[in-house]
Simulated assay, not measured.
Amino acid sequence: MENVFYYDTRIGRISIIENGMAITRICFANKIELNNELNIEANETELLRETIKQLEEFFEGKRNCFDLPLEPKGTEFQKKVWDALQKIPFGETRSYGEIAKTIGNEKASRAVGMANNKNPIPIIIPCHRVIGANGKLVGYAGGLDIKEKLLKIEKDYRR
């Protein structure tokens, strides 16, 4: 059984989902349908409260890294990319090509982009820090406006 709770934040409404031991997903403005097939229940747990607390600290510039148990579901390649994303320092960006090189497959820029797109725990796994090779903001599950807000938060509060 997973638990979900919805929060209104300075970047919009998000839902956070956990499995009793770790955060499994964060969704932007999405209503997760609660039914027996999905095995999700609306229940604000201690882990969800701690997660939103850390996210709010991040949005306020009081936190530049997260200390939460994470359990993203994906392929081995996706997990490799998501691990690389977590190593991008707060306030910095990398291109898809740079991430491909980091994971040892410099020709995998497009595959990195697809893995980035499938990131189930945005913000905490900072896919917003990945930009196009030309420095332009490209693609983001929450929309480019949210990506821009997240990068601005990091730029404004970079220490």
Rank of each mutant, 00 (worst) to 15 (best):
L151K: 05
E33Y: 10
E60C: 10
L85I: 07
I124G: 03
R10E: 14
D156S: 06
A115G: 07
M21R: 13
K118N: 15
K73A: 15
R49W: 08
D145I: 14
G97D: 06
I11Q: 13
P126Q: 03
N36E: 12
K87R: 08
L151M: 10
D8P: 04
N35I: 03
I103T: 07
M114W: 14
N30T: 02
N134K: 10
L70M: 03
G74I: 04
Y140N: 12
R94S: 11
G143A: 06
R63C: 02
G61H: 06
I26H: 04
N35Q: 02
E57A: 12
E2R: 07
I40H: 06
K107T: 11
G113I: 09
W82M: 05
K53L: 11
N105A: 12
E106F: 04
N64M: 12
F5I: 00
G61P: 02
L137D: 04
M114R: 14
M114T: 15
G104Y: 06
A115H: 09
L85F: 11
L68C: 02
E50L: 08
F28D: 00
I17C: 07
N30M: 12
I125F: 01
A84L: 04
L47D: 05
K62R: 13
A133V: 08
L70V: 13
T24S: 10
R94L: 09
E71A: 15
L68Y: 01
A115T: 03
K152R: 15
A108Q: 04
F90Y: 15
N64R: 14
E106T: 01
L48N: 05
N43M: 06
K155P: 00
E71F: 15
N19P: 06
R13W: 03
T45G: 00
I40T: 10
Y7F: 14
I124R: 04
V112Y: 03
